[in-house]
Design a protein around this nucleic acid. Structure first.
Lengths: 146, 146
DNA sequence: TCAATTTATTTCGCATGCGAACTATCTAAA
DNA sequence: TTTAGATAGTTCGCATGCGAAATAAATTGA
């Protein structure tokens, strides 16, 4: 009857995310590429020329989120905004040469992160974690659905 | 040889955390109490009069983090800063009457959140998740330890 | 064709929280 | 006692990302 002792899941989730983000940022001080930024680099690595909205959807970011991220990465000369030739409202995002380099570096760094994220856990356990995290996405939806 | 398909754990963790945070904030628009703020309310509910540093440690926040949170919650009349009588550098945090009310409301809301965080998962699975999240704290430490 | 609506993106104000640098106070050592 | 740390908080500039509102271009319908 007592609530499962997982009251702390909210807190644990928050802390784990912040620790990981901070750690990743601290690991590329030379490049200045953060976790969020490397996310966009990856997306463009697979889909260069994506619309901002597409990139935002891939990263689960709303319009303001992707807009700001693109601003900062454009200022850092990692990506470029180019007008879509067919739609005057839309912009497509392209990696710059420097962005390509940063993308490759981030990719390499990710191997280390992945190792730390899985070390000491079996594949089955990691599957549980991944399933839980994925489930939380639908359980705490964007809209204000009940 | 292919990397475990958990490349996405970084991303999943990020998204899950943002979704949860957004959802919690959207659920108390009347009170305006956010997830971070309810965290401090809980801490003071158990340890009213805590030092800022103690509260920060309980929430895994550094000095700037707790300082800003306290600023906003003081402005919202949820808590009070009072000088420590024994240490001129230190401040102790106290719930206001409004803070006490908000704390009780947050506590009630947490039951719902907890249900959503665990529904569909066995106790054993939730234990794995909690252990994983906890492990990530030591695996991505605050200092720049390797 | 032309108004109404939808869609893509931006802008604004905000909350969160970090790292670095600063201030003020306390403590310990010479 | 005086001074050299250590400790508690604050402040600054920044990155992240949200909700609400605005802008501008495309689409749809009468």
């Amino acid at each position: 009857m007592s609530p499962r002792r997982e009251h702390r899941l909210v807190f644990l989730l928050n802390v784990a995310q912040r620790r990981l983000q901070r750690w990743m940022a601290a690991r590329s001080p030379h490049t200045g590429v953060t976790a969020a930024q490397s996310g966009l680099l990856f997306v463009l690595g697979q889909r260069d020329g994506a619309l901002m909205g597409e990139a935002g959807a891939a990263l689960d970011l709303g319009p303001p989120g992707i807009s700001g991220l693109v601003d900062r990465m454009t200022a850092a000369n990692l990506i470029e905004r180019r007008a879509d030739p067919d739609d005057g409202r839309a912009w497509r995002l392209w990696l710059t040469p420097a962005g390509r380099v940063a993308m490759a570096q981030s990719k390499a760094g990710l191997a280390d992160v992945n190792a730390r994220l899985t070390e000491g856990f079996t594949d089955a356990e990691i599957d549980v974690v991944a399933r839980w995290l994925t489930t939380m996405q639908s359980r705490f939806p964007k809209g204000e659905d009940e």
